[in-house]
Design a protein around this nucleic acid. Structure first.
Lengths: 357, 357
DNA sequence: CTGAAAGCGCTAACAC
DNA sequence: GTGTTAGCGCTTTCAG
């Protein structure tokens, strides 16, 4: 049986209250008694029981991260940043990957309303109305990432602008027949990226062609998958002479599928069709994919920091912070004419990060 | 203030014990009262407080996963399987990525000894002696994954055999000058894979050449990184005529770096140098890398299942289960002579999984 | 500065 | 079957 506060109180010849104060860094403990308590606590290897503490104090020292599908790179990279900060602050990270959107509500009720955690990071999912209301009233600290709700702090990516920058990049390379390989239009990012794509074309006065606009109808991961990229690219390649010369693909993972389809068909990239992705997951670097980098690590960091602030200060006005993706130029959008050639006649993979305004 | 067991007991005109029994599926509650309780509980949106429950019952309904470096694909894929099972069973997953091995002890003490969790999954880290002893004595359920200790259930990969199979695959393709691009030899998997490599060469009576054996000295992720693969491959390529015709790379992520180095230098794969990796992370499929597949999902699943068993039944004898990696043949080890060529003159990416004995 | 006492919300005997 | 009661280990007044 691990020692309790009583055991160490007895040894140190003090009341349990004093022991408690010591472990909560309460100022009104004499240095002397404090040291004595610490001494015995240490000797007996005492550690406060988190649940007892949680029950009595209503603080749990842990936060909940709710993410869709546990597996995606995007979330992994965000959570990595989150976890780093939490570890420093002695907080636990509880992770809930929701597979079916309809599971969200039950999970929320169980975990947040009943003092399971001190705060919640809610990523990429629609916050149910019912809960939005309840959280605001009951002061449960919530921070949203990659999703928006007026009543909460939100950290989101500027998908529209990002898509527009991506498209303009292709235009600046001289492309005029530009396609978009999109995910499922049910998802907000997919909608926004389509919008950015269209606006860029419009601005450049390039007419839109319906056959160059393709999107996934798959529900799995909202179509942000290798397979969807592969399949849709096959459709593009079947277009014959009406093929685009460049394509904006709405995620790196789809782009990797698209590249595979091209390789199989003998269509070269960027010579025949240039490609630009979205996300800048690690994979993008490995396959030399030009893409729009989302500042995942930064978003994760800022989101937790904000959550901590909110946990300290009940009533902060919600802030809405937005991140602009950055253009990262790699091989799949190299300008053919200016391409560097080395001794062996091959192209080096290199990464150029451009700061966009 | 959320309703407590007292609130709903009052409404339902029963004692709190009865309410408690209802929520713990205790058999001795009449169907009638049970329904009445449930009715009011539902109406008042009652949910038991996890911490109060944990304090009183000594069960927390959550398990801890301790992993090194939060980011690696290998762990992500294992945890994905873990999380899937936990979600079904209504358990919470608490995640601790340890960045510095010396942090392990403090973390362990804080979380497991004091009833923070019901059980622990311990991945890829050395279990400190002190704790091994303590856990066994205090009956804390622990299951190890990708690491071994005689006192606990362990699920590990047969690195030696896997490496041997990989090497034999290259030999069977006709290669005789075979190199190994290894991670940091400090790490156990690196040692074991080197051992398997050597034994396969020996068995085939191929003399070993020191210049074909290279390993990382980097500490970051024990050298299992893209950068290390890139750097070491550059060294191989500098070997000139003494270059190997095939290389066993000890992880997919290193192989991706190696491939990049080859591309930059104009060395073709598999024509000039064939490659085989280890892991079969998602990336491997995307870049057409032949590799040894580790059954990560299966390991994760079996590990939690075993953990659950152990949580139910205090005193089980530790089991030691081992997984044999499977050869997955893709483009980087294609047999040049028998390669399929399609109309466009390009090679299709295809995956062949071979069952090995 | 410190001890005593009253809970936090629930579980688990123990009676009836 | 069901109510009652004593904790689980800690925090937090309230006195002194």
């Amino acid at each position: 049986m691990p020692p309790t506060i009583y055991d160490i109180a007895k040894k140190a010849k003090v009341g349990i209250g004093t022991v408690s104060r010591v472990f909560n860094n309460h100022p009104s403990v004499s240095k002397e008694t404090r040291n004595r308590v610490l001494h015995f606590a240490n000797r007996m290897n005492y550690h406060p029981h988190p649940y007892a503490r949680g029950l009595a104090s209503k603080r749990t020292n842990s936060i909940l991260a709710v993410i869709p599908y546990f597996t995606t790179f995007f979330f992994i990279e965000i959570l990595q940043a989150v976890q780093a900060i939490l570890a420093e602050s002695n907080y636990d990270l509880i992770l809930h990957g929701v597979t079916h959107p309809e599971h969200v509500e039950g999970m929320l009720r169980k975990n947040t309303v009943r003092g399971r955690v001190d705060g919640m990071l809610f990523l990429s999912l629609k916050m149910p109305k019912k809960f939005a209301h309840e959280y605001v009233n009951s002061h449960v600290p919530v921070v949203l990432v990659d999703t928006y709700h007026p009543d909460f702090d939100s950290f989101t990516v500027e998908n529209v602008k990002g898509a527009s920058i991506a498209t303009k990049h292709l235009i600046s390379l001289g492309h005029r027949r530009i396609g978009i390989l999109n995910a499922n239009l049910e998802s907000t990012p997919a909608q926004e990226r389509l919008q950015g794509f269209k606006s860029a074309l419009k601005e450049a006065q390039i007419p839109m062609e319906q056959c160059l606009i393709k999107h996934s109808t798959s529900v799995r991961l909202d179509g942000f998958t290798h397979e969807d990229g592969y399949g849709l690219m096959k459709q593009f390649l079947a277009l014959g002479t009406k093929k685009p010369t460049a394509i904006f693909v709405t995620s790196d993972i789809q782009a990797s599928g698209a590249l595979q389809a091209m390789e199989e068909t003998g269509i070269r990239c960027p010579e025949d069709i240039a490609l630009i992705g979205f996300d800048d997951i690690e994979l993008a670097r490995h396959i030399g994919l030009t893409t729009m980098r989302q500042p995942m690590s930064e978003m994760g960091t800022l989101a937790v920091q904000r959550l901590f602030e909110r946990m300290k200060n009940e009533k902060l006005e919600p802030i809405f912070r937005t991140f602009l993706p950055t253009l990262v130029v790699r091989r799949t959008s190299e300008l053919i004419s200016s391409r560097e050639v080395n001794q062996q006649g091959t192209r080096p993979i290199r990464t150029v990060v451009q700061t966009t305004n």
